[in-house]
């Protein structure tokens, strides 16, 4: 096993093969959790853990599963992992787990996980699959964090709950500044992702649609 190849599994999904903005997967649960940075980070980490271990388990099982029933087996493996993550979040970061509400459960139907298991883990060795899962989870998390950064900064003037825009700037204290309330609404997340895709494809011309 060459370590160069392994490194590619990790870094590929971060840029040229990003699961969210290039393959357009896993948007379902991605956008609603990006109002604040903290839930976005927790969500990104949870998806990374589930993707990595789902890839690992399915790669270990890949020779023993008849292909007709593989979807149901995959769903059961993923659901079991998500239940573990959900219980873990409830135990250690209860407030974030409350904010994420149904979106933790929706990790099960996150297309990235199914997509990676189908496209990668069923045809590759366990260690490579595990790395691929980590890489794709990181790619997903990077987009989540970027969107959440802009939404929290401009929407409420904070980052991770700390005030970034000085209080004295606000109109309420005699300043000139207002928070952009539109950033807090769900449609703004979509428009931000659209803009990220725009910038990304301007630099990666081979991804543009003709």
């Amino acid at each position: 096993m060459s370590s160069v190849k392994n490194l590619k599994y990790l870094t590929g999904p971060l840029n040229a093969n990003n699961p969210v903005i290039v393959q357009i997967l896993g948007i379902c649960s991605a956008l609603a959790v990006t109002v604040k940075l903290k839930p976005a980070i927790v969500m990104g980490l949870s998806v990374m853990v589930v993707t990595a271990f789902a890839n690992l388990v399915m790669s270990l099982l890949r020779k023993g599963i008849p292909s007709r029933i593989r979807i149901i087996v995959q769903l059961v493996v993923i659901a079991a992992l998500v239940i573990l993550v959900d219980q873990f979040l409830k135990a250690y970061v209860y407030d974030v787990s409350k904010q994420l509400s149904v979106y933790v459960g929706l990790i099960i139907t996150n297309c990235i996980i199914m997509g990676r298991v189908e496209a990668f883990a069923l045809g590759n060795k366990p260690w490579a699959s595990f790395l691929d899962g980590i890489g794709n989870g990181l790619g997903y998390a990077s987009i989540l964090v970027t969107v959440a950064f802009f939404r929290e900064l401009f929407g409420s003037g904070q980052l991770l709950g700390f005030q970034i825009i000085p209080e004295s700037w606000y109109a309420a204290d005699g300043g000139f500044y207002y928070n952009n309330g539109l950033m807090l609404f769900p449609p703004m997340a979509l428009i931000l992702v659209g803009c990220i895709i725009w910038i990304h494809r301007s630099y990666n011309k081979d991804l543009q649609e003709k």
């Binding site: 357009i24 769900p186 997340a189 979509l190 659209g194 895709i197 910038i199 649609e209």
Partner: peptide
């Protein structure tokens, strides 16, 4: 549409605008 925005990019932005309308 700008080349880089074609396909999913513009689809996201349209969905966002429709979402604002639905609000």
């Amino acid at each position: 549409i700008p080349e880089a925005l074609k396909g999913p990019g513009i689809a996201f932005i349209i969905t966002g605008l429709m979402g604002i309308a639905f609000m």
